[in-house]
Design a protein around this nucleic acid. Structure first.
Lengths: 345, 345
DNA sequence: GTGAAAGCGCTAACAG
DNA sequence: CTGTTAGCGCTTTCAC
């Protein structure tokens, strides 16, 4: 607890460099409009004293924090069962770091936490927010809008109330799903089933819609609702096999679901992919490569999604952050997916 | 971008309630020593105006930020392949939230980032730091110590220089390893191999030492170095089978490693657990339950580790945060592990 | 180009 | 118990 008593202030640097506080401030913030010899002297003083600006004092006057909140609103433990969020965070972190912004992480465990998050965002602690994993019945969007903080969403928000042009980044869930099902069709499969994700999330809805795009005529009994978990995948797979013993392929809403389905198929003596071809979604490596057989799946670039979200937000916060390469501002950005072929289909 | 022009200040609340700023400040910060009717009036004014304290202004004078940095220093992608960090973060987040502290996440991608983290910590933006995943050759510990920020480490720090009493939270890696090996011995296995983790981390070293505690006499060829990844597990398992075809059990340093080993065993036609029993470490559910056969492993309560780290830090920052239940301050806290029996051993 | 001075919104003595 | 006052460390007009 013996603290490094007091850190040097602008004042101290100014004294040492023999200039005014204003000049030091200018140098510290880029040094425009200060003559070279002075810049040099100030720089040296900063160096010698080990001066670091006090962010609180700075924020007080600039009203900027150079900090962004990342809100992960996953009530259940699902988040933590997969690397999804870690990857997003990594992408976000890289981008924020590159622009000298800090990442404040807000994890919510349930409804009660939503108010807290709303309060925090409204409290003006951060310049903007990145929000994930909204569920259709979520109270968070309202709170966030009320907070008046620039926000970018991860995944297409699906609220029915006409939220005007929420900015978001998403994967091409529907297109990816179509690619998955077409792949199965290309394999000559005809009785293709689908285990959905949790249908209170747009990603699950979009993937199911993609399935339907290709299998418009499909027997409705071939679609069973899952929840993005292996247990859900097992349950759904059992139900499918009971209902339609003649199915010859399964498109699972994510890799975890597919892993559960694979287990049930093996347990029921179906060979994969010979009897039943299985395809997942995500390309979550530790899962997809670990299953038996390894999983054919639809890959989404999760880290890139994170990076893009951060980039979009930073651009809104300060147009100077815009890269030349940035596209015209459109409310939503949809990233492509690719098929990764392994052994299961 | 049309911003809610200016947020109300203490001044505004004071005016509305007909009291001084000081009184409002007192009420906002707990209201001790203010008479009830005034408290009530101020509360109402706060409510009506939607007043939220400006944290920057507050920090400027209190020199507290009610924010804690979480530093995850994993140069490689390993972090993101498993839920380990997500779980820790969750535990940390819960504890911090309960004490109204914010979580600032600092991810480092490599050496270059270390300086940045050091600077940030030294910059006095946060009241303390929680640091993970140190490697033996890491520059971070020095930087952190230099920053003079109260810190709690995740995992026993293993620097050779005599860092005095760094506070840390760890699992009982050595004891858990012993339990694992004893379990194999109890199964009647005699040729027990060990695939280590990355030996630049104390967790890997401690697990190996636990193995040796029980198998002091073991053939040294039965120990092969891995790196906590499935690929490393595969490679090591191949080497082991080549060296010692007669082995009848494997203790893998973590579940991911065990998963890789299982794959090689199957590929080589060894039945698990009949021919070779396999035991892992972590009880990382999405991995341990997904393997074939499901993995017997040593469970550590990762979320609890996170929670405990945060609790320890908060207690150092402000003794009032101490729970009555907290143990006497000891530099390191070691959490117990338990054996989870599934099918692989 | 550089310095002087006026706050940003809040807390913490200190009076009363 | 409540109000007055003096800054916390920095940026930013505005003169010089």
């Amino acid at each position: 607890m013996t603290e490094a008593v007091t850190r040097p202030t602008l004042e101290a640097v100014a004294a040492r460099a023999g200039v005014s506080r204003a000049t030091v401030s200018r140098v510290v913030n880029g040094g425009d409009g200060v003559r070279e010899p002075l810049v040099e002297r100030v720089r040296r003083a900063v160096e010698e004293l080990g001066y670091v600006p006090n962010q609180a004092a700075r924020s007080l006057v600039t009203r900027r924090h150079d900090a962004v909140a990342v809100v992960i609103a996953e009530p259940e433990t699902r988040v933590f069962a997969d690397p999804f969020f870690a990857l997003q965070l990594r992408g976000i972190s890289k981008e924020l770091t590159a622009h000298d912004n800090q990442l404040v992480l807000l994890l919510t465990e349930g409804r009660d936490d939503h108010a807290r998050v709303g309060r925090y965002l409204a409290g003006g602690h951060v310049d903007g927010a990145l929000v994930f994993s909204l569920h259709l019945d979520d109270a968070l969007p309202g709170l966030i809008r009320g907070a008046g903080v620039p926000t970018v969403f991860g995944g297409r928000p699906g609220w029915s109330d006409g939220t005007p042009r929420a900015v978001y980044v998403d994967s091409d869930n529907r297109g990816g799903a179509r690619a998955a099902v077409r792949h199965l069709v290309g394999l000559g499969r005809t009785r293709i089933a689908h285990i959905t994700g949790a249908l209170d999330q747009t990603s699950a809805v979009d993937r199911r819609d993609g399935f339907r795009d290709v299998m418009a005529e499909a027997d409705p009994r071939l679609v069973v609702e899952g929840d993005f978990t292996p247990a859900g995948g097992e349950r759904a797979m059992r139900e499918l096999l009971d209902r339609c013993p003649d199915l010859d392929a399964v498109f699972a809403a994510n890799d975890l679901t597919a892993a559960g389905a694979l287990r049930v198929l093996r347990e029921r003596g179906r060979r994969v992919p010979d009897d039943v071809a299985v395809i997942g979604f995500d390309d979550m490596l530790p899962v997809a490569e670990q299953t038996d057989p390894p999983l054919t799946t639809i890959r989404q670039d999760i880290e890139e999604m994170g990076r893009l979200m951060a980039r979009l937000l930073l651009r809104r916060l300060d147009p100077r952050n815009a890269d030349d390469t940035d596209a015209a501002p459109s409310p939503g950005v949809v990233l492509p997916t690719t098929l990764v072929r392994r052994a299961s289909a």
